[in-house]
């Protein structure tokens, strides 16, 4: 409560207090500026190798045939939808507990990417389900809980942008993100707790993966590539958001100066 500066103070021209506030984001800009090109190049490289392996050099499945290749997109998207949400929850907790301004920005920039990734997970799953299961969609516990995860991503993205004061939106979004965490174990264990049309986990399970290594290795490469791309996207968006915030502060300061100059 007391740590939130009044609105007038937050928008004040660069006083020592707000300079201190930007000190940390400045360091973030410098460090992320060095990392981002390498991260993007690594994502592009790993993704190109993974997709080529998945499409051209991995075997078909004995009963799914070539349609199994959808799995190399679907499964990484599912992992990212859940792992990304965990990152959102951690950033939200950091924002609520430590009031770290970067955590708010990170959460704000994370949710649109998470929503796209979850939508891709749902869409590719549907494209696989139609020929394999015989239906685009069923309301079983796994599919329904992933749809709820998608709504949580969308809800967070909309909520943090719904307020005039970014601090209030960020706090509301952080609370929503933390409430939504209950859905993560439901998504993960839905296939074990209830009978579902969706199959149980093949890779992340106790014992040997129920997937032949000639499919498992390209899947892991694709998952790494998509994860790197996800990280690069979120980092680039967060950098842009930090710069945009600084631009707003500078423009406000300039407007004040001009106002004072006019009055004098």
């Amino acid at each position: 409560m007391d740590a939130t500066p009044p609105i007038t103070a937050a928008a004040a021209p660069p006083a020592p207090r707000s300079l201190h506030r930007f000190a940390n984001p400045g360091r973030f800009l410098r460090a992320s500026g060095r990392v981002l090109p390498w991260l993007s190049a690594a994502a592009a490289g790993v993704l190109a190798a993974g997709v080529a392996w998945a499409l051209a050099f991995s075997p078909p499945d004995w009963q799914q045939g070539e349609t199994v290749r959808i799995m190399y997109v679907h499964v990484p998207m599912a992992w990212l939808a859940m792992g990304g949400y965990l990152a959102l929850a951690l950033a939200s907790a950091a924002a609520l507990v430590w009031r770290h301004p970067l955590a708010d920005l990170l959460a704000r920039e994370l949710s649109p990417v998470g929503a796209v990734v979850t939508a891709l997970c749902l869409a590719t799953g549907s494209l696989w389900g139609r020929p394999m299961w015989g239906t685009w969609w069923v309301w079983d516990a796994r599919l329904t809980s992933v749809l709820v995860l998608f709504f949580l991503w969308l809800g967070h993205a909309a909520l943090v942008r719904a307020f005039d004061e970014p601090e209030r939106g960020a706090r509301a979004g952080a609370i929503l993100a933390l409430i939504g965490v209950v859905n993560l174990p439901i998504v993960k264990f839905s296939v074990d707790w209830w009978n579902t049309l969706h199959q149980p986990a093949s890779v992340t399970r106790l014992g040997a993966p129920a997937m032949h290594v000639e499919m498992l290795y390209p899947l892991l490469v694709c998952a790494l590539g998509f994860a790197l791309a996800f990280a690069a996207l979120v980092l680039a968006r967060t950098r842009a958001a930090v710069m945009e915030r600084r631009i707003r502060a500078l423009e406000l300061a300039r407007a004040r100066r001009e106002e004072r100059g006019m009055a004098a």
Binding site: V51, L55, E66, T67, R69, I70, V73, H74, M77, L120, A123, T124, L127, W128, R130, P131
Partner: peptide, 10 residues
């Protein structure tokens, strides 16, 4: 078509 659509969407 389904495989291509999946990769194209991604």
């Amino acid at each position: 078509a389904h495989v291509a659509a999946s990769y194209a969407l991604a």
